[in-house]
């Protein structure tokens, strides 16, 4: 880890101001991602801005009946928040699957959303890939068993690492960001960006000196939601595929659906075919299976990760079954 100067910001504006410097400045929240990147010389900032004492650490109700979650809320506090658990059960389910107790105690909602890819080429200094200013994605010809099966047009084939981004997108959350030009709100589903040669150095729309300050969840309404993760290890591990479904019910039938898959694409992957397959159908296992088939109909796996298609399909099916209150296995 390269030596860096340190700023302990005490409010949002101080963070934005402190991020402005001649060198590279990075905000530090829970540090569970950033410190590892710095130790591995993936990032070597000149200045670290501690945002833990500057950003909101609370979950509050919105006038619209939703919740406003501070970016510095710890994952464990999100998980243990009763309002979150009652109103957004899939978010609650996603939170407890993150990392380990130690990580959940330190890591924040904002950090989870903005963490960098866990791609092993990105994480090892030896591989100077697109995301590090290079001109290759090593996964294309290399070890891609944990890489994307959707959105594989390149140039990068990472899967987005955020576990919370998926339920946030499914619940229609909006992200509030603050920057030198003031604040703005972005739909969670528009926040993450597919890689292009111009955008591959980052995974989202944040501009220089902008920080994420809040996640704003709309009132849940008459929905049923479900979340399912496929993991190799039961203990600490990254998911191989996971899904959040949010179903707006119309009597006994599904009115509309949001189906978002994680760990399968460079962004939280919204499956329109699965959503179409659910609309107007009764909520049962047969519907779940049809939607799961639809969800993976457009998958384009790489040389070594076709197995993830089956996992994604299973995750979709079981997330829907959980939304239906059915036993998954």
């Amino acid at each position: 880890m390269k030596a860096f100067a340190y700023v302990n910001a005490t409010n949002e504006r101080e963070v934005v101001a402190a991020l402005k410097t001649d060198g590279i400045a990075l905000p530090l929240a829970g540090g569970q991602d950033l410190l590892a990147r710095m130790k591995d010389y993936i990032d070597s900032p000149d200045r670290i801005v501690n945002v833990k004492n500057a950003l909101d650490t609370t979950v509050t109700s919105t006038p619209e009946g939703g919740l406003k979650i501070g970016a510095a809320v710890k994952i464990i506090d999100l998980y243990e928040n009763q309002q979150v658990a009652r109103m957004y059960p899939a978010l609650n389910a996603a939170a407890i699957e993150i990392g380990t107790p130690q990580i959940r105690h330190q890591a924040t909602v904002g950090g989870n959303i903005n963490q960098r890819p866990r791609c092993w080429y990105y994480r090892n200094e030896e591989f100077v890939c697109y995301k590090k200013g290079g001109s290759r994605c090593f996964a294309v010809d290399g070890e891609n068993q944990y890489h994307a099966i959707f959105g594989n047009d390149g140039p990068s084939h990472i899967v987005h690492p955020s576990s919370l981004a998926v339920p946030f997108a499914a619940y229609g959350a909006r992200f509030r960001v603050l920057g030198p030009k003031g604040d703005r709100e972005i739909a969670a589903s528009d926040f993450f960006t597919m890689p292009t040669l111009a955008s591959v150095l980052k995974e989202n729309v944040l501009e220089d000196e902008e920080i994420l300050t809040h996640v704003i969840l709309p009132a849940p309404g008459n929905v049923r939601s479900g979340h399912y993760e496929v993991r190799y290890k039961a203990s600490h591990d990254w998911p191989l595929a996971f899904t959040t479904v949010v179903l707006t019910m119309n009597g006994n039938r599904i009115g509309s659906a949001r189906v978002v898959l994680g760990a399968v694409a460079p962004v939280p992957w919204r499956s329109k075919p699965a959503e179409a397959a659910l609309a107007g159908k009764p909520l049962n296992e047969d519907t779940a299976m049809l939607a799961a088939e639809a969800a993976v109909s457009e998958a384009k796996p790489m040389s070594g990760n076709a197995y993830k298609v089956q996992m994604a399909k299973t995750a979709v099916k079981r997330a829907i079954m959980r939304a239906a209150g059915l036993k998954t296995v």
Binding site: G142, Y232, K233, A234, S235, H236
Partner: peptide, 30 residues
């Protein structure tokens, strides 16, 4: 049987998982 695997990149020959995050070892729940 299940978890460990020293993985060398088939193109560059460099190890892709020289850590304890992607070099998997059982935890309590396993």
């Amino acid at each position: 049987a299940l978890y460990e695997d020293r993985l060398l990149d088939r193109v560059t020959g460099q190890m892709v998982n020289p850590n304890m995050e992607f070099y998997l070892l059982a935890g309590m729940s396993d």
